[in-house]
Amino acid sequence: MAVERIDPPRTGGERETLRAYLDFHRATLVMKCDGLTDEQLRRRASPPSTLSLLGLVRHLAEVERAWFRRVVGGEDVPLAWSPEGDYQAAYDARGCARAEAFAAWEAEVAHARRIEAAAPSLDTAYHAARWGEEVSLRTVMLHLIHEYARHNGHADFLREAVDGTTGA
């Protein structure tokens, strides 16, 4: 599953730059998983933690779903891996295959891109029930960039533990 990672612009509009950085981090996650077997993708970093590369893919699918479909899009959809709303459930990928996790993640990214493109402005506010307050599209996009950047740091260590590969 090779992916081309874009180089975010050094100048440009705010929305274009936010989109580019979010796509850069999405592509980084895919690169960290490239070339590994399902078993390698499910390998846990340091048991008893269930954190694995595949768990990160599942978690970030949930993050995309929660923020773009539920908050910005206003859709009444449950979490993909926990109808009870337990975000931690996605991390446990023991019974999951690459195809399932990446299909869910790719679908959520496609929804997110569509919803973001349709939003009128970065200043448009949406109710984030989890936080109990209004958030702008700008905040949502920055939050997703933060989520990916943090978890891509985890992915660096996970990948190195699997096969020694470093760098992005």
Rank of each mutant, 00 (worst) to 15 (best):
V3H: 06
V3L: 10
E4T: 12
E4N: 07
D7K: 13
D7P: 02
P9E: 12
P9K: 08
P9N: 11
R10L: 13
R10F: 09
T11A: 13
R15N: 09
R15A: 05
E16L: 13
T17Y: 08
T17G: 09
Y21G: 00
R26G: 06
R26A: 06
V30E: 10
C33M: 06
C33P: 04
C33F: 02
L36Q: 01
D38Y: 09
E39W: 09
E39G: 04
L41G: 04
R42K: 13
R42Y: 06
R42F: 05
R44D: 04
R44P: 02
A45M: 13
P48C: 13
S52I: 08
G55Y: 04
V57M: 10
R58G: 03
H59W: 07
A61I: 03
E62S: 07
E64T: 04
A66M: 11
F68D: 00
R70L: 02
V71M: 05
V71I: 14
G74A: 06
D76C: 07
D76K: 15
P78S: 14
P78V: 07
W81P: 00
W81F: 14
W81A: 01
G85S: 09
Y87G: 01
Q88G: 12
A89I: 12
A90K: 04
D92K: 09
A93K: 01
R94N: 07
G95L: 08
R98M: 11
F102P: 02
A103Y: 05
W105K: 04
E106C: 03
A107I: 00
E108V: 03
V109N: 06
V109T: 10
V109L: 08
H111G: 01
A112V: 06
A112W: 04
I115A: 04
E116I: 14
A118N: 14
A119N: 09
P120N: 15
S121H: 15
D123P: 11
H127I: 11
A128V: 06
A128S: 13
A129M: 11
R130S: 14
L142I: 13
L142E: 12
L142H: 12
H143E: 09
H146I: 10
R150F: 04
H151E: 01
H151T: 01
H154E: 06
H154R: 04
A155Q: 03
A155V: 03
F157W: 12
A161W: 03
